[in-house]
Every structure is written in C-alpha cells, then in structure tokens.
Design a binder for these strands. Structure first.
Length: 427
RNA sequence: GCGGGUGUAGCUCAGUUGGUUAGAGCGCCAGUUUGUGGUACUGGAUGUCGUCGGUUCGAUUCCGAUCACUCGCCCCA
C-alpha cells in the first residue's frame, strides 16, 4: 500500500470506472436532449455569497460543509456544493429572464466537506436539470419524466422508487411550521437531542428523523397536507394527475422534505435500498423563490440532481469497452514494424480504432490483442508485405483471409460488420 | 461532527499464542509453441504486514497516536 494517498474523500477514476461514469453522464445528456434540455456549464467556484445566501443558513451544507477560501485578492470563494445556485446565478448574470422557458442539463464535480462513506465523497459528481420560468406543474411533470427516463435508460429503474411530496407554497408552509413546532414543543422530553436542536433551525427535518423516539412523536404530528391552501392543493393534484397520465408510478411520502431552503411545492426523490445509508440517487423539487432571493426577477423553477457515482454503483454491469482492431507485425524485420505503423495510421485516419502493441514477437502481440478484446487482427508478415497484402483474422471465429492492401479498409469493414456482439471478457 | 469495524502482494484474503527466509487464489512475466491469441501444464517476480512512536534482547503480531476505508448516526446526490 502506497503512502501516497489521494486527499480524503476523493477518488481516481481508472479507465474501467470511467466507462461506467461516462455511461451515466452520456445517458443523461442524450436523454435530456430528447426532452429539449440543452447542456450548459457554470464555473466550479463562485463567490461564497452565491451559496451562503441561497441555500439557507439552516442547512448543514452551508453551515459546515462548504470548501470556502480566500483567493490572493482576499475574495471569499466557494467550491460549489451543488449545481442549482450556479445555474440560477448564471441565469441572472446573463439576463436570460426573457429566454424562458430555460431548460438546461449540466454535469460536473461538486464539493462538500463531509465524512466519507460509501456513496458519499468530498468530491463527487452530479448530473442535473433545471427548468426555469414555468410556474405550471406541467414543468414538474416533464422534469420528473426526464429523470425517470434516464434511470430507465441506465437499466436501474427496477432498483429505484419515486417518492413524492408537496411542501406547499410559503403561506401553507409557514402555517404548518407554526402548528408543527407547537405540537413538538409539547413533547420536547421525548425528542432526541438532535431533534431538539432542529426544532429551532429546521423543524421540518424532524419529520424524517430515524430516531425511534422521534418517529413515535412524529407519528401523531399534524400533517402538512392539512395546512395546504387551495392553490397548493390544486398544484399538487395537477402534478399527480400529470404523472399518472404518463404512467409514472410514485409513492406519496408526507414526511419527505428537502435539505435546502429554496424549495417549495414539489419535492421528490428516487431512492434505492441497494446503497445502504446513501439511498437517494436523484432528488429535486420546485424553487420558485430562489431567483428572486438572489436578486433576479421573480422566476419559477424546478429541477433535480443525481449522483453520478451512486448511479454508477447501481449499474448491473459496466458497459463493454469498444473492441479495437489489432495491428500485428509478424517477424523481426524492422521494416515490418515501420510498415505496421504506417498501416495503423492509415486505418485510424479511415476511422478504425486500432491497437498497435509496441513490442514482442507475434505470439505476444496476439496475446495482447486478446487482452484488449480486439475484434480482428490485421497481420502483416514478410509474405504479405511482398505481396502488397495483409491477413485479416477474425479473433472470435478464428477464420482468416489475406486481402490486397488497396482493399484492406473495405474487407475490414465487412468483417467488422458481421461481428457478433461480445461483452468484455466474455470471449 | 459522534459511535463501532477494518488496514498483510496489483486484487480478494489466510497467517503469525512476539522469534531466522510472511502464504494462497486471481492477475502479471516467461516457457511448452521464435507466422497465430483465448484453454491446459511448468516455472518465475512482486510485500518498508497503512504510517509514526512506545514496550521488549527481538514487533507484521502487544500498546498509543495518526492516516485511509467501511458500517450506523448526522447530512445528502
């Protein structure tokens, strides 16, 4: 074991991990494109105020998990802990209020100073979408449908359930908060120490506490549903009906809340029990107040973010690597080595993925071809060179033919087209 | 941030009641096969026993600290 360790909570993505990682991101990107969400990117650091002001001073993310530092000029900067605040800032900075509906997809690293665990790192990656400027619940339906489609595309939907709740509008939420705090204050003695603290800061959080005593108290607490005003109720009903129209199953969870302050109305999570304590794989909701809070025009918004590492872990098997063509000079004559390099470049320029081992006799090179899962070997020996030809060997069937050099690409293309699909390592 | 577990080869792990040269499987390298891979057989290489310190004639083994991972809490994607 090396003493050269990476920073706590960070990880290297070796090529095999990277394949799974890219599969998640690219599936997200492609699916989002079908739903009309264009990709954009914001900087991975912002002025500290962008996050401190918007995420709310009750969330742990702001109070103790941000990587905030002063640059050489003394500006306080923060490595982004999530994506929505940056997108909202960009929406305002670029004067996009007249460009609504503004529909974007993003992917990139996020940073939180947390205690690492499986599925929880200090640098991790999210994909996410935001739909800004549409107050209608149809926007929520579209955003959730897109999320589901991505999980479907990744083949993980069977491991995942959609939980849904409404937080109501500000008026409903304030009324409920008063009622909830009043109730909980009457049972102070039975609440956990954590929850007694939360009573001040973030009473809604007590609803999804895992503490036994808390759960008993909460079981008889007033429900948010009882405090929803007519507008909030109608919004929630429209959302549920919209989801049902699309055949999207969900479970209502009246205790589902959001960690960040800017959410209202819709809250949802796709969760799994396959990842231990870190069961949330994609989560989001509506944040109609956010952009105004940041100093922009009052603008509605709804979106979600998903953990790329968590999704990668749910993938049944990593996607197969592309199978290259192996170029194999057979013989020790240096001229063969040079000619093989020339032919390799010629094939690559023609669009083929070609692996050229750098050393070894023919047997070694064939072994390498096998290890990289090459589909076809292009063999160039003394005989072929003199005949202006190469031998193409199908490495799955073992059949091989010798073809003239000027027909190499065409024959190779035909051989590859007839290739059966074979998974990595499954030869 | 709190409480528990773990750390031995590239990987998964065994082992040492403190004592000379620390093991297995997989992987890797080589050979059987110097113009033909996957299988099989044969042989080989690789460890500061996570790190630092303490106890001891002697520590990979005991003790302490530390770092990392991991499980639960917390938080969240």
């Amino acid at each position: 074991m090396s003493t050269l360790q990476p920073v706590r909570g960070t990880h290297d993505l070796l090529p095999e991990d990277m394949r799974a990682f890219r599969h998640v991101v690219e599936t997200g990107r492609a699916t989002a494109g079908r739903y009309g969400f264009a990709e954009m990117a914001t900087p991975i650091f912002e002025f500290a105020g962008v996050f401190a002001r918007t995420l709310g001073d009750t969330s742990d993310i702001v109070t103790k998990e941000m990587y905030t530092f002063a640059d050489r000029k003394g500006e306080l900067l923060t490595l982004r802990p999530e994506g929505t605040a940056g997108i909202a800032r960009a929406f305002i900075s670029n004067g996009l209020a007249n460009e609504t509906p503004f529909k974007v997809f993003y992917a990139g690293p996020m940073f939180r100073y947390e205690r690492p665990q499986k599925g929880r790192q200090r640098q991790f990656h999210q994909i996410g979408v935001e739909l800004i400027g549409v107050p209608d619940p149809q926007a929520d339906v579209e955003v959730i449908a897109l999320g589901r489609a991505i999980l479907d595309g990744l083949g993980v939907r069977g491991n995942v359930t959609l939980e849904l709740n409404t937080l109501g509008d500000a008026e409903s939420r304030d009324a409920y908060r008063v009622a909830l705090v009043g109730y909980l204050a009457g049972h102070l003695g039975r609440l956990s120490a954590d929850s007694r603290e939360r009573l001040e800061r973030n009473p809604l959080r007590i609803l999804d506490s895992k503490d036994e005593g808390d759960r008993e108290v909460v079981a008889h607490a007033p429900l948010l549903g009882e405090y929803l005003n007519d507008a909030s109720k109608a919004f929630y009903d429209d959302l549920k009906n919209g989801l049902m129209d699309l055949g999207i199953d969900f479970t209502e969870n009246p205790r589902l809340v959001r960690g960040l302050d800017y959410y209202g109305h819709t809250a949802f999570e796709f969760t799994t029990d396959a990842l231990g304590a870190q069961g949330t794989v994609m989560a989001g909701g509506r944040y109609d107040g956010l952009i105004k809070t940041m100093g922009g025009p009052a603008t509605a918004g709804v979106g979600w973010a998903a953990g790329v590492e968590r999704l990668s872990m749910l993938l049944a098997e990593p996607p197969a690597a592309d199978r290259p063509v192996a170029m194999i000079p057979a013989g020790s004559d240096p001229i063969l080595k040079r000619e093989a390099m020339v032919l390799t470049e010629r094939l690559r320029r023609a669009g083929f993925a070609v692996d050229l081992g750098f050393s070894g006799n023919m047997g070694k090179r064939m072994k390498r071809a096998n290890k990289v899962c090459a589909r076809v070997a292009v063999i160039l020996g003394e005989d072929e060179r003199l005949a202006r030809a190469v031998t193409l060997r199908d490495l799955d069937s073992g059949e091989q033919t010798t073809v003239a050099l000027d027909r190499m690409e065409e024959s190779l293309r035909r051989m590859l087209a007839g290739a059966p699909e074979v998974a990595v390592g499954g030869i």
